[in-house]
Write a protein that binds this DNA or RNA. Structure first.
Length: 697
RNA sequence: GGACGUGUAGCUCAGUCGGUUAGAGCACUGCGUUUACAUCGCAGGUGUCGGGGGUUCGAGUCCCUCCACGUCCACCA
């Protein structure tokens, strides 16, 4: 054995040994309770960042621990097509070449993105392997695998047949640059300074920050109790420039104390206005098209972009004296979470999922602990979401995704929903020309079905045996996007919860507690860290010091310290095993607990037992940080600094105990530091692999 | 505006049911070590547990209040 543990010499070889031994694939045994984790699939085209390393560390510790406990353990890996995310990245690449998605037809674009993702899809997988992930790669799934898509279609059809899918003209968050609508959750709100314009509407003055869509106004609204306007209710106001009359109505959302206490209602281009229009059954007019240009407006504005139109309208209103005054205001506006451009609320035909029946069931499951959220604070957040979730717009105007299996009859405009196959004829009128909707599903609609979609399409019997899965572990920031959707759709499609427990983990921040982002330049590349200090050190560094629930500040110092710990363990082994020739020829079995009379021997064996029990208990409670600390403390302080030093004067006598304690240390350390422990185990000359060793309870 | 958190050593964080002298790692200081490891050992000690009030025999822990900070959500045009 070398003087220092050189991880780069061992890690790759050891991983190959594990993989080829089949240790990652569970052996189904109906008599035993399985342990199952479905991996949150990373984006297929992205390299791993430090956040991925956190879930790899956590889930691999759990998988290895339960595997050693003798449970048939399946950690099922996958990758995600990540619709908007990936298309956005790809379009950025196109832009670098001076191209855009409009230069290609749908099928070509899809194929190009497919190829691009294929090129990169091995990266994240090999990087997870680099970190020691003991996932069953023979069951790897991709969210666009045809059999997965079939499951998604089946669920959509069931939802449609049971009346939970509807197509409605609804106001959606539309990014004119991305050319797609976004869910509420994908819109960011940023603060901005703007002008508030007071416009003369003939009978009264209204205040608005957006003068350009006044052409699509259908009413002016005031608060029902506002005395200033009481005499005007039911009368008419006049839209400037075009001089069209619109009714003056009342609605409680209007804040009498803000602005003029009177607002224009443009339901085609404002969320609040849309809701007012719904309540008052007002028509919906459009003044802005999906490309962000003006339509249905006086000729001089037609075709202008929104901000150009605003300038022009303001100039004209100023000239005619119809702007009573302007005020500076500070407010928040919605921007696209991808490219930061201003979100244009727009009326558009979209597919919606009525969520109430699903959230109701999910809420009951959470409250009765059929699905147990291991942290109280996240349970509260999940409950809050389930109570307040609005109907879910599941269609996206992008090509990179699962195309919605909806065909419209060209004759009678009836929609035919199938479970994937193109319908031959319209079931209503018999017409044979039908065209498929261009939209694709929101990525979360398909990934929300991931736990059962994967298990229904891997090996025969997998679903029956492994579902519901044991625990779902993922970062808390996707609780509303993904986790509650999995509970909702899992319950709906299978009648069972998708997982019995949810273990949320926190985000990884840098040592100053800053969120890690490329623009801040504080990214910690997990692979670089693993290359420098070893995967074991990185894993320990990640679980060390903070609860799984909480955000962690990861520093290189921390990882270096754990590298030292790995080396410590290595050198303990070097000390214990170095006497092999002299002492270790008595056919002693290192896995057997020796009988002892010496007080030091008794002490270390008792401490070992205590630590084993404690670590087992802590792992069962997902208190990985405390388990890691206990491990560190036992091996370094008790075993090395204390016991091992004392044996130096009585080596032969203590050898059996040293070997046994070393072996047990390898076992309890293995989930955390799989490589160095396996490397040492191989040095003992014993058969087999440590990964398959039984846990010592 | 709403929800959920956080505040403990210089730094990053634990502290479970309210119970002994509040802990760990890193950093720091001193001493030591050729033979398992300098990726080492031994020793050292730093705390108004954010402030204030309350409950209690007893509070870092429970309650109230204030302050500071964070995250998510949101409909003030």
């Amino acid at each position: 054995m070398d003087k220092v543990y050189n991880h780069s010499e061992y890690e790759e070889k050891i991983y190959k040994k594990w993989e080829s031994s089949g240790a990652f694939s569970p052996i189904v045994n109906k008599k035993k309770k399985p342990f199952t984790i479905i991996m949150p699939p990373p984006n297929a085209n992205d390299p791993l960042h430090i956040g991925h390393a956190r879930f790899v560390a956590i889930e691999d510790i759990l998988a290895r621990y339960h595997r050693m406990q003798g449970e048939p353990t399946l950690w099922l890996p996958g990758t995600d097509h990540a619709g908007i995310e990936t298309q956005y990245v790809f379009e950025k690449k196109l832009r670098e070449k001076g191209k855009s998605r409009f230069d290609y037809d749908r099928d070509t674009l899809y194929k190009m993105i497919w190829d691009y993702v294929q090129q990169n899809s091995d990266t994240s997988i090999s990087q997870m392997k680099r970190l020691g992930a003991s996932a069953d790669w023979s069951r790897l799934k991709f969210t666009l695998d045809p059999d997965i898509v079939k499951v998604i279609y089946g669920t959509f059809k069931k939802l449609y047949d049971e009346g939970l899918i509807y197509r409605g003209e609804r106001i959606v968050n539309y990014c004119t640059r991305c050319g797609t609508s976004f869910s509420e959750l994908e819109v960011n709100h940023v603060e901005r300074d703007d002008e508030l314009y007071y416009l003369d509407y003939g009978t009264l003055t209204i205040a608005t920050t957006r003068p350009e869509p006044i052409f699509a106004d259908v009413a002016v609204a005031v608060h029902p109790k506002d005395k200033r306007y009481k005499h005007l209710i039911g009368k008419k106001a006049i839209i400037p420039i075009i001089n069209r009359e619109i009714p003056i109505i009342t609605d409680a959302v209007v804040d009498p104390s803000y602005g003029a206490g009177a607002v224009k209602v443009s339901p085609g281009h404002d969320k609040v206005d849309f809701e007012i229009a719904q309540r008052h059954k007002l028509p919906i007019l459009k003044a802005i098209d999906v490309d962000g240009r003006m339509i249905n407006v006086p000729e001089k504005y037609a075709g202008l972009y929104v901000n150009q139109a605003r300038e022009a309208v303001v100039a004209d209103l100023t000239e005619t004296g119809l702007i009573k005054k302007t005020e500076k205001i500070h407010h928040t506006i919605g921007v696209c979470y991808r490219d930061k451009s201003v979100i244009e609320p727009m009326v558009s035909k979209q597919w919606f999922l009525e969520v109430k029946p699903l959230t109701k069931a999910a809420l009951a499951a959470v409250k009765t602990r059929r699905v147990r959220i291991t942290s109280q604070k996240f349970e509260k957040i999940a409950v809050h979401w389930l109570k307040n979730l609005k109907d879910w717009n599941i269609s996206r105007q992008i090509v990179w995704g699962i195309r919605i299996p909806a065909w419209r009859c060209e004759k009678c405009l009836n929609w035919e929903i199938t479970s994937g196959l193109e319908p031959l004829e319209c079931t209503k009128c018999g017409h044979t020309k039908l065209t498929q909707d261009k939209d694709t599903f929101d990525t979360w609609f398909s990934s929300g079905q991931w736990p059962f979609a994967t298990l229904q399409t891997t090996k025969k019997g997998d679903f029956d045996y492994f579902y519901p899965t044991s625990v779902m572990n993922t970062a808390y920031d996707i609780l509303p996007f993904w986790v509650i959707k999995m509970v909702m759709l899992g319950l709906y499609a299978t009648g069972e919860v998708p997982f019995k427990e949810i273990l949320f983990h926190g985000l990884v921040r840098d040592r100053e507690g800053q969120k890690i982002s490329k623009s801040k330049g504080n990214v910690i590349n997990p692979i670089k860290m693993a290359e420098k200090y070893g995967a074991d050190a990185l894993r320990m560094g990640i679980v060390w010091g903070a609860l799984v629930d909480n955000d962690i500040s990861l520093s290189e110092d921390n990882i270096r310290g754990q590298r030292n710990f790995a080396n410590k363990l290595w050198n303990i082994a070097r000390f214990v095993l170095s006497n092999e020739t002299k002492i270790r020829n008595s056919k002693h079995e290192i896995r057997t607990r020796p009988r002892v009379t010496n007080l030091d021997d008794k002490w270390i064996l008792a401490e070992l037992k205590k630590s084993q029990k404690k670590i087992t208990k802590l792992l069962d409670k997902y208190r990985l940080n405390e388990a890691a600390e206990e491990l560190y403390n036992f091996i370094w302080k008790k075993f090395a600094d204390s016991y091992l030093e004392k044996t130096k004067s009585r080596r032969e006598d203590a050898q059996a105990v040293l070997e046994y304690v070393l072996y047990c240390s390898l076992v309890i350390a293995h989930p955390f530091m799989p490589f160095v422990t396996e490397a040492i185990y191989q040095e003992t000359g014993k058969d087999g692999l440590l990964i398959n060793a039984p846990w010592i309870n």
